[in-house]
Amino acid sequence: MAKIVHVVESFGAGTLSMVSAIANRQAQVGQAVTVIHSLREETPANWRALFDARIEFIQLPMVRAIKPGADWHAGRMLTQELRRIRPDVVHLHSSKAGALGRLTSVFHRGPRWFFSPHGLSFLQRAEGRLKNTVFLLIEKLLARIPVTFIACSPSEAEQIRANLTNRVEVVCNGVDLDAIPAAPGNENIVRIGTVGRVALARNPELFASIAEALRGAGVEFVWIGGGDESGETALKNAGVQLTGWVDRAEALKQLATLDIYIQTSRWEGLPVAVIEAMAAGLPVVATNVVGNRDLVKDGENGWLANDRDDFLARLVPLIESRGERQRLGAQAKAFARAHYSLDTMMENLNRVYGLTEK
């Protein structure tokens, strides 16, 4: 039985979804799993219910911003917990836990250390060129520490190799495909939507602009989730239906009521929501960014878009043709089932951890 520790500060949205899926499967096969985490504003109130009862949890006050005093304190606490647990594997998730954990690894030898960015900080174009340059410089310095990156998509791995290090393995995100209900399509209405937190990364302003241009008789837009007030205001002003935060089961139920799925992200790792939409049999139109482009193949299971006009050009024919929606949706479902199952992800992750023979 291996002892595995997951360290995550970004305890919400897609990162929480992936950490819970991984940790649950590990606990179910008899691994001793500990999750060291912080709580964020977007952490759901019932987060504990998302995890297997056998998993141990340790709350550690990591902060999102760079704060030397708080970061030193969090790093010291992390070291103390790892000395107590004595894990075989430490898996760091997202930028802040990745930074603290890699620095901790310099002083705490013994475990095999891994880092999953879940979206590279220096690719977050909305943060501004100067800030992204700072992020890249920090990552270049941290990349000298011998911790293995785990990229969640081939395109994320390409960016890591090009900018940081060759010490990277690819383990694509996966989902429990059998838990995703099919989207049968609607009569007399075309529902276009997305699932996730209303946040800067997901570019709700672009979603609102698309909805403003296309909504009307027979077409409606829905955002399954809630979040930042400014983004919610933009969506409501554009006539978008907002469900507010819902749990995963309800989100999947709502997903199955859509006809077309759109992903307006500014940046991604490998979006779980897009995989789930594909598995439900929905055609996807998504921004042409890292992660999305690993999933969406133009004209085969959906379309990539560079800007608002691209989205409009791809969505109009889909709105007009149920047959084309069904064709792309069927291809999307087959693609998700062939490549993005949770079983496949766990097999690859165990191989990278060194818990199975290569």
Rank of each mutant, 00 (worst) to 15 (best):
F311P: 05
P117R: 02
R86G: 05
G281T: 04
R48P: 11
V63D: 09
A201K: 01
H93E: 06
A32I: 09
P204D: 00
R322C: 12
G291V: 08
N173R: 08
R25Y: 13
S121H: 14
A143P: 07
F51Q: 01
W113S: 08
R266W: 14
R266Q: 13
E127C: 11
I58W: 12
G269M: 11
A336C: 05
Q331F: 12
D88N: 15
Q31P: 00
G329S: 10
T257V: 04
E56P: 04
I36P: 07
N186M: 00
L200I: 03
F335Q: 05
D310G: 15
F107S: 13
Q80K: 12
S116I: 06
L270T: 02
V5P: 09
C152W: 08
S341M: 06
A182E: 13
D310E: 10
D294S: 07
D88W: 04
A336Q: 02
L50T: 10
V246G: 02
R167V: 01
L100Y: 01
P181C: 00
A162F: 07
T148Q: 15
E42D: 15
G196Y: 08
N24H: 01
R337A: 14
H6R: 07
A183R: 11
N348G: 13
S20R: 11
D52V: 04
V284H: 02
L103H: 02
Y261A: 06
Q331I: 08
N24M: 04
Q28N: 11
V168A: 07
R202A: 07
L295V: 05
P204C: 00
E158C: 11
A99R: 10
R48V: 12
R293K: 14
N163W: 11
L136I: 10
S209P: 04
L123F: 13
A238V: 01
L206T: 05
T34D: 14
L120P: 11
